[in-house]
Nucleic acid binder design. Structure first.
Lengths: 183, 183
DNA sequence: AGCCGACATGTCAACTTCAACATGTCTGTC
DNA sequence: GACAGACATGTTGAAGTTGACATGTCGGCT
């Protein structure tokens, strides 16, 4: 359902679009939030047209089909945004790795965390560039800001975890006791 | 692959376990990070045993099978943690909604954000309880801390967005101009 | 003895997603 | 005229995920 909502929203915001256009937009700023490749988009557009949410407005050269949103599509989007409660299920590989950190020997854990830190910094720089490029009033501004704040949180967490691991190392060296922790 | 890693890690950390045990643990703190139901876990355990990553250590009453990790399993887990780069693809419905906020009339957007704020606060309280319950040295402590920091980031973002929307409303009332934004 | 709830494991059909395969057009340049 | 690169839309098979269906055991309570 989220793919439908995303497609409806992109058409609502950007006006009539082809599958090709939409694929490009999925590769842009939306990629930080949701992904879909053309092999998912084209069939979905056909299904949505069959369901009356979209209408093929024009067929151009090279087989180009331009879809526009119908009243039913607009109402579906509205309903999804306002009446569907957000899917709470998360599947976050980064967080999963975080969960498993205590399984690693300290040095390896630290390596992993430093790697994560580098990665987060790089991504943050990327987003910050995007942020200043698109300016204050871009369509994606809210999502961008959200992504940025989450990256900062990830960075703070990695720093906290590194410090914590280093402290516990010192403690261990002093007392020669190895606490194990429980699940 | 992540499911395999998670199962290997749970057995490595918690000792020999049955599918039932593992299902329960997936419903616990791990649920904030990764989900899997028994219908996914049981077949995967069988496959992993066939692949030599696990060994059926004992068969108890009620058909209970206790799996323990093998050397191959341990090495697979280690390799996944250290040598597989984290999957960068994200699919975040909350962020998708954030992306779409500019599509809504201000009042509805504000409603959505306030709802989000309530939800984040509730979740945060939940995690904070968990955090103090499990104490400092729990296996899931790092993931918990990460989750908490991300929730705080979500909260700050929602507050920022609400304020921004209200400000732009004032600006609009003053100038009677409606900026639209671009994708 | 009967029943309930927790324990315990499985299958199956439907759906989503992805990478790879497949085809063809238009535009500009060498 | 040949070729490259962007434009444009599809299909297919494999893998991951879910909810529903299905089956049976054990312990404790009435």
């Amino acid at each position: 359902m989220s793919l439908r909502a995303a497609l409806l929203a992109l058409i609502e915001a950007g006006g009539p679009s082809s599958g090709y256009d939409l694929t490009k937009r999925f590769e842009g700023s939306l990629a930080y939030v949701w992904q879909a490749s053309h092999s998912q988009i084209y069939p979905e557009l056909n299904r949505m047209a069959a369901d009356g949410l979209l209408r093929v407005e024009a067929e151009g050269s090279r087989g180009r089909k331009t879809y526009s949103i119908t009243a039913a599509g607009r109402s579906e989007l509205h309903q999804w945004l306002l009446e569907t409660k957000p899917e709470q299920r998360v599947r976050n590989e980064g967080a999963l790795r975080a969960f498993l950190i205590p399984l690693l020997p300290r040095e390896e854990a630290l390596g992993l965390l430093r790697e994560e830190l580098r990665h987060v910094e790089a991504r943050r720089a990327e987003l910050e560039t995007l942020c200043s490029d698109v300016g204050e009033s871009s369509f994606g501004r809210y999502a961008l800001e959200r992504g940025l704040r989450h990256l900062v949180a990830s960075r703070e967490w990695a720093l906290w975890a590194i410090e914590r691991l280093q402290k516990s190392e010192e403690a261990r060296t002093e007392t020669a006791r190895t606490p194990t922790g429980e699940l």
